[in-house]
Amino acid sequence: MSENEKKPEGQGEQDNRYMFFTRREFVIGAVAGAAVGAAVTGVSMKGGPATAPAKPGAASAKPIKVPSYIAVDYAKCTGCRNCEVECALFHDKKLDLTRARIRTYYFNPPVDVPSLCAKCGDAPCIKACPEKVGAMSKDKTTGAVLVDEKKCIACWACIEPCAKDRTDVIRKSKDEKVIVGICDLCGGDPSCVKGCPEGALSIVPVYQDGKYFAAKPADIARAVAKNLYKA
């Protein structure tokens, strides 16, 4: 699937093309106004404790063949951060969580929010990367944003558009030599999805013509808390 140039604003879930997502019970999708950058994130139905415990490791991800992102069932996430460790081990072979491309945050009232790249179709990060640098590209198969660390000149141009009204996952590496935080979908078989003991992470195809799932952890937490704690 090629990158779609269209950027429909306020694409509604009633649109047939998006029914795929609404049928999934865990994500309604996020629609963001360009000015406010406030995302309304739909979350799963209450269901964690009542469901039978997931069998960790049982999930065997099929290699990703279409542009996809990793959808989070926030009601199932317990905040154990196994995903972070699996990510760090896969990419760096050591426990450098500062480089993990998924990070889980706690909010009050108790909500755990794994935060990772939303694979925005319009990829403002790639657009921000200076043309002559060209350190970022989109994987034509998985849709993931790939970062060539050798080309990155640490100009931080990509950080701002992501922080402004997307997920805010892009950050400086500890040595400030390269950007870190962008999920590469492990080349098509994400280790966080396989390693989640709760089955809270799923691989879901993502359309390429909008920034539908990008939201910052605090905004997600607010929406999830409202959904989980109804009283």
Partner: peptide, 9 residues
């Protein structure tokens, strides 16, 4: 009960 919570790992 609304949700489970874990400690690190």
């Amino acid at each position: 009960w609304v949700k489970h919570r874990s400690c690190f790992q």
